[in-house]
Write a protein that binds this DNA or RNA. Structure first.
Length: 407
DNA sequence: TCTCTGCTCAC
DNA sequence: CAAGTGAGCAGAGAC
């Protein structure tokens, strides 16, 4: 009830304003990019048809599986649950070193995804007068307390690949405004450190250390942060991301491409160095078994009846859900509280600037030129002070004339 | 037209 | 067995 009256209900008008405001896209830029992508896709398709010696629908996993594994006789791996050959990214990646076609398919897929899901779809949804796109922020979908976004989903705009970033560049401010992006740095890890009372991790955050390097130092038994190699840091980062999801030795090893034994060693060492995290995991599962629900630090509740299931698989899934929800959900509670307070500031001060998007740990604003200087520190302050953990919350802010460069 | 499946984008 | 939360696309098949 407190989450409802103090957080969710006050958030409703905030989300309504964000949806009504919308965000402007550069339609010309997207149209030009669409032309490039179409040209490259046709060329890739031609090459693939030539190398496979057959024309087929490249977008059909079924037809693709037939061509790769029956006609060409490539070594097949996983099957899907309907008994077809899997052509998933993982499967194709496995073949990509030895064979040319799977690698070309991967290139084709990534471009086709960008074109169909974003470059062609977004302009269709823009207001023809204002060129602004209006998403729906769904408040009652995600079981952890996160928002979701639909029609279009503006929470999954590409950023990881070079050409994906082209799409972010097409999100722009209105004349006279800048886009401001403010994102919480490592918020979920800070929540874990705080909930689990992980002393070394708390110290690292207080000292402003590189948290993945610190984790590497701990799990690989090094004496100093300077001794951490890039490869050790990469592995430690994967552990830090996997822990809040209840990753197994097998899961970690397969993601890192290392032996299971090595994955197990890393996880064992992690729990040795951060015993609070292990205690958190076991006590959270125990509590969930007892009450059939788990909670965030602000009291949001998620019921997990499967935690008592006799089915090994269902119970395991429920346990990982139980571990994850308080972490993901506390982060969601924190940003929601910040949104309410920032909206209140913008309304109270009669600002022309406005909040446009929320992407789980990030808020995007359209800020009038003459309000940037005053608002940026206030936004940062409200986000960092939204909730007190036993570690500081840190927010990174960027200002630019498109979303990519603001990030 | 509707639903399911496989795949891939984000945090 | 095996990493949590979502959304949308194209293909495929039922109706």
């Amino acid at each position: 009830m407190e989450i409802a009256t103090e957080l969710e209900f006050p958030l409703i008008p905030v989300l309504a304003r964000m949806e009504l405001q919308g965000i402007k896209i550069d339609m010309d830029r997207l149209q030009a990019f669409a032309g490039e992508l179409r040209k490259d896709l046709i060329a890739l398709q031609e090459t693939i048809f030539q190398k496979t010696g057959t024309d087929f629908n490249l977008n059909s996993p079924q037809q693709l599986g037939d061509v790769l594994f029956n006609k060409m006789g490539l070594p097949s791996g996983k099957k899907t649950k309907t008994g077809q050959y899997s052509t998933s990214e993982a499967v194709l990646q496995e073949l990509a070193n030895e064979y040319e076609v799977p690698s070309l398919i991967l290139d084709y897929r990534s471009l086709a995804k960008l074109l169909s899901t974003y470059v062609e779809a977004l302009p269709k949804l823009a207001d023809p007068e204002t060129h602004r796109i209006h998403t729906s922020f769904n408040q009652t979908i995600a079981a952890t307390g996160r928002l979701s976004s639909s029609n279009p989903n503006l929470q999954n705009i590409p950023i990881r690949t070079e050409r994906g970033r082209e799409i972010r560049k097409a999100f722009i401010p209105e004349e006279g405004f800048m886009l401001v992006s403010a994102d919480y740095s490592q918020v979920e890890l800070r929540v874990i450190a705080s909930i689990a009372n992980a002393t070394q991790m708390i110290q690292a955050f207080e000292d402003g250390e590189d948290i993945h390097a610190r984790t590497a130092m701990e799990i690989f038994g090094l004496d100093s942060l300077e001794d951490v190699t890039p490869d050790q840091r990469r592995k430690a980062k994967e552990v830090n991301f996997g822990i809040p999801y209840g990753v197994s030795a097998y899961g970690l090893a397969s993601r890192l491409g290392i032996p299971n034994k090595e994955g197990k060693q890393m996880i064992d060492r992690y729990f040795e160095r951060f015993p609070g995290v292990q205690t958190y995991m076991t006590s959270t599962i125990e509590e969930a078994r007892d009450k059939q629900y788990v909670t965030t630090l602000m009291g949001r509740r998620r019921y997990i009846p499967d935690i008592q299931s006799g089915n090994w698989n269902a119970r395991g899934f429920a346990e990982r859900t139980a571990i994850n929800m308080p972490i993901q959900g506390t982060a969601a509670d924190i940003i929601k509280k910040a949104m309410i307070e920032i909206d209140e500031l913008l309304q109270r001060e009669g600002c022309r600037s406005r909040m446009l998007l929320q992407v789980h740990d990030e808020l995007v604003f359209e800020v009038a030129h003459d309000e940037v200087e005053e608002l940026v520190p206030k936004i940062r302050g409200l986000m960092e002070q939204a909730f007190e953990l036993s570690v500081p919350l840190e927010v990174e802010v960027g200002v630019a004339d498109n979303w990519l460069d603001a990030h």
